[in-house]
Simulated assay, not measured.
Amino acid sequence: MDSLEKKKNIYERKRLLDQVVKYFFFFLALVCASFVIFIAVFITYKGIYPFFHNYSLVEGNYIHQDIGKFFTNTRWLYDGTGGMFFLLLTTLYTTLLSLVISVPTSIFTALLLVRIVPKFLKSILQSAVDLLASIPSVIYGLFGTGVICPIVASLGVDTYGGRSILSGVIVLAMMSIPTMTTLSMNAMEAVDQKLIQSSIALGASNAQTNFKIVIGTATSGIFAGIILGIGRALGEATAVQMVIGNNSLGTSFYNVFAPGNTLTSAMLAGIGEAAGIGYDTRFSLGLVLILVILAVSSLLSAIKERINPNYKKEDSFFYKIKSLFRKKEVTSDGK
Rank of each mutant, 00 (worst) to 15 (best):
G221R: 03
L195F: 14
N206A: 14
V191F: 07
N246V: 01
K212T: 14
I227V: 13
T179R: 02
E273R: 06
G245S: 11
Y254C: 08
A204P: 05
L263E: 04
I271S: 12
L268K: 00
F253D: 10
D192L: 06
A274C: 05
N261G: 15
G245R: 03
A190Y: 04
Q208E: 15
N247K: 04
F257Q: 11
Q197V: 08
A266T: 02
F253C: 10
G225A: 11
V243F: 04
Y254N: 09
N255H: 13
A204Y: 06
T179P: 04
G216E: 14
D192V: 05
M242N: 06
N206E: 15
I226F: 10
M174C: 03
G235P: 00
R232S: 10
G272E: 15
I177N: 00
E189G: 05
K212H: 15
A207R: 14
P178K: 01
N210R: 11
V191A: 12
Q193K: 10
T179H: 05
T238R: 02
Y254D: 11
T179L: 13
V191E: 13
L249G: 09
A233E: 05
E189P: 03
S248I: 14
F223G: 07
N206K: 15
I196H: 07
G221V: 09
S252A: 14
G272P: 05
G260N: 06
G250V: 11
T238L: 15
S184N: 04
M185P: 05
F257A: 13
S198K: 04
I226M: 12
N210L: 12
A237W: 00
S184G: 05
T179M: 13
I196W: 07
N255C: 11
I222N: 05
Q193C: 06
T251F: 12
L228M: 15
D192S: 07
I213T: 15
L268G: 06
I177D: 01
G229Q: 04
A275N: 04
G250N: 11
L263C: 05
L268Q: 04
A224P: 08
A275M: 04
N210P: 10
A187C: 12
I222M: 14
N261T: 06
S176F: 02
R232G: 10
G270T: 00
E189C: 02
T217R: 11
K212G: 12
A237I: 00
L228P: 07
L202W: 06
Q208V: 13
T181L: 04
T262G: 00
V243M: 07
S265T: 00
Q193E: 15
M180H: 04
G270D: 02
K194I: 08
T264M: 02
S265G: 03
L249K: 05
L183V: 12
G250I: 09
G276N: 00
G225E: 11
I215Y: 07
V214F: 09
V191H: 09
G260H: 02
